[in-house]
Amino acid sequence: MINGAHVILYSRDAAADRAFLRDVLGYAYVDAGEGWLVFRLPPAEAAVHPADSPAHELYLMCDDITATFAELTAKGVEFTEPVTDAGWGVKTTLRLPGGGDLGLYQPRHATAHDL
Rank of each mutant, 00 (worst) to 15 (best):
E78N: 08
G26N: 11
G26T: 04
L21F: 15
P50R: 05
E81Q: 14
A32L: 11
L25T: 06
L37I: 02
H113V: 09
F20C: 05
A16S: 14
T73R: 14
V24K: 06
D64H: 09
G98F: 05
A110S: 12
H49C: 07
A46F: 12
T80H: 04
M61Y: 09
F39V: 04
D52H: 02
L25A: 00
A32W: 07
D13P: 00
Y10W: 05
T73F: 05
A86K: 14
S11K: 04
E81D: 09
G76F: 01
L37Y: 11
R108S: 14
A16V: 00
T68P: 13
A5C: 12
E45I: 01
R22Q: 14
L37G: 10
A70M: 05
I2A: 10
V38A: 07
R22I: 01
A14R: 11
L72M: 07
A16I: 02
A15T: 11
G103H: 09
K75Y: 11
P54Y: 11
A51V: 00
A28I: 02
L94G: 03
A44W: 15
Y105G: 10
A46K: 14
V77C: 01
F79G: 03
A15K: 15
A86H: 13
P107S: 15
S11D: 06
G103L: 06
Y105V: 10
G98Y: 05
Y27R: 12
A14T: 12
A70Y: 02
H49Y: 15
I8M: 12
H113K: 08
D52C: 00
H113R: 15
Y10Q: 12
D85G: 07
S11M: 01
G100P: 00
D85A: 08
L25R: 04
L102I: 12
I8Y: 03
G89L: 10
V30D: 11
L94K: 10
L41I: 08
V83H: 00
A86P: 07
D13F: 06
V48T: 11
A47L: 13
T92P: 08
A19K: 10
V7I: 15
D85Q: 05
Y10R: 13
A15V: 13
G76C: 06
E78W: 07
S11H: 03
K91I: 10
D101N: 14
D31A: 09
T84N: 11
N3L: 12
A55M: 07
T66W: 01
G98V: 05
G100H: 05
R40E: 15
T92N: 01
A16K: 08
G26S: 09
S53F: 12
H6I: 13
M61K: 14
